[in-house]
């Protein structure tokens, strides 16, 4: 058990290292110069003043140092929890900007990922042996899962937002409001949350339902199901066993899909101008904000790694075969 988790942690550590390095490289090798755009924004016409400003900012962000030193400094700062200062909303620290956006992204991601997984599995298992459902609702699942996230998001925003007018199409809350812990604000928050949530939930739901349906059919045809049926066990018991075994690949699937789901959520946020990490990334790119981009990516990488690690643990709990493999099989 300890060796298993030790190995897992090592792999996660390596992944983290590589991801952070790439993360550091990408903005730096992007075309464009953030300092000159900052200087240009101030509108200083005097070349001497502009030059002074350039030197000041270059020095402030550490761009005057050689690349390798910037890299080492970057790691050093990272371990102190310092992601640098945002260029876009100078001089707010990146950590602060990200922490302001994270609750929105998590509030969107966690319910949509978990709910779509649970509901999809339940529905797929239910549809597996009912011809009518299998022939009517499951094709809808195929259409849903084949849909790009942003396209469904645009459709929902147009249909339920613009045409029907039931839901707002942009923002995390109304512009007229200030964030506070009042019922009014929370309701408003939920109202804005529905459409982005629905678009993420629906696309993922179709995939899980189809996967589960196929797995259940496979498990019900398997040898242990046939054996139980031959011994006259009731369908209830057979289905319970089949479900339990069919869920295992779905858990693996969840781990594999996590990255895709995060990307989907980011794009969806941009469609709805939802103030989460996705919108932040867009802003960071538009403003050549190295530090913000780096920080956001780092946060996403961390999130995906942690989620995968949790799934690893869950898998060990639910599948005895992984445990048996760790202890070594008895003769």
């Amino acid at each position: 058990m300890r060796r298993y988790f030790g190995r897992k942690l090592l792999v996660y550590g390596l992944t983290f290292f590589v991801a952070v390095t790439i993360n550091w490289m990408i903005p730096r090798f992007m075309p464009g110069d953030p300092v000159s755009s900052m200087v240009a924004r101030t509108g200083a016409s005097n070349p001497a003043a502009a030059e002074t400003m350039r030197v000041y900012y270059t020095n402030l962000f550490g761009f005057d140092q050689p690349l390798w030193k910037q890299y080492v400094n970057f790691w050093g700062a990272l371990f102190q929890g310092d992601f640098g200062i945002s260029i876009w909303v100078f001089p707010t620290p990146v950590t602060e900007v990200i922490l302001g956006a994270v609750p929105y992204t998590l509030g969107l991601m966690i319910p949509s990922v978990l709910l779509s997984w649970v509901v999809g599995n339940w529905f797929g298992a239910y549809a597996a042996r009912r011809k009518v459902l299998d022939n009517t609702l499951l094709p809808v699942g195929y259409v849903l899962t084949a849909m790009p996230y942003m396209w469904l998001a645009v459709l929902l925003a147009w249909g339920l937002g613009v045409v029907a007018g039931w839901f707002p199409v942009a923002g995390g809350y109304s512009f007229s409001m200030q964030p506070s812990w009042s019922w009014e604000f929370i309701l408003d928050l939920l109202h804005h949350w529905v459409l982005p949530f629905a678009s993420l939930f629906l696309v993922a739901l179709g995939g899980w339902a189809i996967g589960m349906r196929n797995m259940i059919i496979y498990e019900l045809e398997s040898d242990y199901s046939n054996y139980l049926a031959a011994l006259g066990a009731p369908q209830r018991l057979i289905r319970r066993y089949a479900f339990r075994n069919a869920v295992l690949p779905q858990i693996t699937g969840l781990a594999l899909q996590l990255g895709v789901l995060v990307a989907g959520a980011l794009v969806t946020e941009i469609v709805f101008s939802y103030p989460g990490l996705g919108s932040l990334i867009l802003k960071a790119i538009q403003n050549q904000d190295f530090f913000l981009l780096q920080g956001t990516f780092l946060f996403i990488v961390l999130g995906v790694l942690i989620a995968n690690f949790i799934i690893d643990i869950v898998y060990v709990v639910v599948d005895p075969r992984t445990r048996a493999g760790m202890a070594g099989a008895a003769a």
Binding site: D223, Y224, Y227, L231, G232, P234, R244, V318, P320
Partner: peptide
């Protein structure tokens, strides 16, 4: 109706004994 007889009156040792037991139950 055959279910009443299975296991109690007629039973089976299948060809696939190696995989006849649910892998995730003790």
């Amino acid at each position: 109706r055959m279910n009443d007889f299975r296991f109690r009156e007629v039973s089976l040792i299948p060809q696939y004994s190696m995989s006849a037991m649910n892998p995730t139950r003790k």
